[in-house]
């Protein structure tokens, strides 16, 4: 099956373009607190990029700035060659950026299937009129939505739970459902916020396989993760944040040996 956009999503850039996302001097201030301080890095199209750093380093805040939940105070977020800083969350989704949340945020009292159906909201266009009178067009679209939702649930391996309420799924299944829901928006860039948190080693291996599958669909994966095995195992490039500042950037080999990273994680003198 294919998860990648069957019809090109809007603003599809030419394939020659190397970087899908460029973070340029992004700063996010909350009153006097600087959560993200003048951070710049680029995410290559088709790679797995990881953002790591101690708790409170500003990783999730940066994700929120990219997806429009908290627009950045300063700087540019360039997605496919276009500055999207200040775009609303639903606009970011429509442009092709999907995300999951650190603390799982599913629609708890909706079925797993409905969760994924909602994800297709911005790629479908039945009007109020169609919905009110169940026009043939709307019926057709609903069938497509349902089929695709089932495909995605199968893709992440929880098709058996389609009719269950999201809140009744097991923890690992909920994490997978969030990924399926995000994929339903037909993203080019998928942001995963600590996808392996609370996973058993076995589940972590399965997650890494799933990330590979997503990558094979042509979707760039940008993730925040604490588990070094996962990060070092799947990512091509890594950015390290500490106290809102970018302290290191490079391949896993470089990051592993970086003195500042070691200090940030283990404290000075380590």
């Amino acid at each position: 099956m294919t998860v990648a956009p069957s019809q090109p999503a809007p603003q599809m850039a030419p394939a020659s373009q190397d970087f899908i996302l460029k973070i340029e001097h992004v700063t996010k201030r909350f009153g006097g607190l600087v959560a993200v301080d003048d951070v710049s890095f680029d995410v290559k199209r088709g790679e797995v990029f990881a953002l790591i750093g101690p708790n409170g380093a500003g990783k999730t805040t940066l994700f929120n700035s990219i997806t429009g939940i908290f627009p950045p105070s300063d700087g540019r977020v360039v997605f496919n060659g276009r500055d999207i800083a200040g775009a609303k969350p639903h606009q970011a989704a429509a442009l092709g950026i999907a995300r999951t949340f650190q603390n799982i945020r599913l629609f708890e009292y909706m079925s797993a299937l409905d969760n994924v159906r909602v994800g297709q909201h911005c790629r479908t266009n039945s009007k109020l009129w169609d919905s009110l009178f169940k026009t043939p067009r709307e019926r057709q679209e609903e069938r497509t939505i349902t089929d695709r939702a089932m495909e995605l649930l199968t893709f992440v391996g929880i098709q058996a739970h389609a009719e269950n309420y999201a809140r009744n799924l097991a923890y690992g299944q909920q994490r997978r459902l969030e990924i399926a829901r995000a994929l339903a928006t037909r993203p080019q860039l998928l942001l995963l916020d600590e996808p392996a948190a609370g996973f058993t080693p076995q589940e972590k291996v399965e997650l890494m396989r799933l990330v590979d599958k997503i990558l094979a669909e042509g979707i760039t994966v940008f993730l925040i993760e604490h588990d070094m095995k996962v990060v070092m195992g799947i990512s091509r490039n890594i950015a390290v944040l500490d106290h809102g500042e970018l302290i290191a950037l490079g391949s896993p080999e470089v990051i592993r040996k970086d003195q500042r990273v070691i200090e940030a994680y283990l404290g000075k003198g380590a």
Partner: peptide, 21 residues
């Protein structure tokens, strides 16, 4: 319908609904 699901999504979690488009 699509609209009805969107309403329920907003009722359940507005931030997540927005992030889903």
């Amino acid at each position: 319908s699509r609209v009805g699901r969107a309403w329920m999504a907003v009722r359940e979690d507005e931030v997540a609904a927005a992030a889903m488009g």
